[in-house]
């Protein structure tokens, strides 16, 4: 449940951004890479718990999973790398290089002004 800590950090960032504004947050968009191992259900639950009693209460959380890019050294193809099945999606070989994983990012929020 590292999602709990991530949810706390999301809330802290949002509250810091909105502290001078009156209203409530209705939607939160985050993105993550593959190595972050974010479980959607756990993340939704953790967010709901962290958001209770804040201006984010009831806000919808959208989680975007950004694929990890691999480049096959055999056929040269750029492909979405599946950590759980690490091979080239075209030729099936497992000689490849992996790009950088996307960071955990708080992308945007939707704010309803009073």
């Amino acid at each position: 449940m590292h999602e709990a800590m991530i949810a706390e950090n999301i809330l802290e960032t949002i509250l810091a951004q909105t502290k001078t504004k009156a209203g409530k947050v209705t939607r939160v968009v985050i993105s993550c890479g593959q190595i972050n191992a974010i479980n959607d259900e756990a993340m939704q639950f953790a967010f709901e718990v962290a958001a209770a009693d804040t201006i984010c209460k009831g806000a919808k959380l959208k989680i975007k999973h950004i694929p990890l890019k691999g480049i096959c050294r055999s056929c040269g193809r750029k492909f979405d790398f599946d950590l759980y099945d690490p091979k080239c999606s075209k030729c099936g070989k497992s000689d490849f290089s992996i790009g950088d994983d996307a960071p955990l990012l708080l992308e945007e929020i939707e704010f309803e002004k009073k």
Binding site: I6, N9, I10, T13, I14, Q17, T18, I30, P103, L104, L105, L106, E107, E108, I109, E110, F111
Partner: peptide
């Protein structure tokens, strides 16, 4: 909409 674009961690 408020763009934030901050690393969560």
């Amino acid at each position: 909409k408020i763009k934030i674009g901050k690393k969560i961690l």
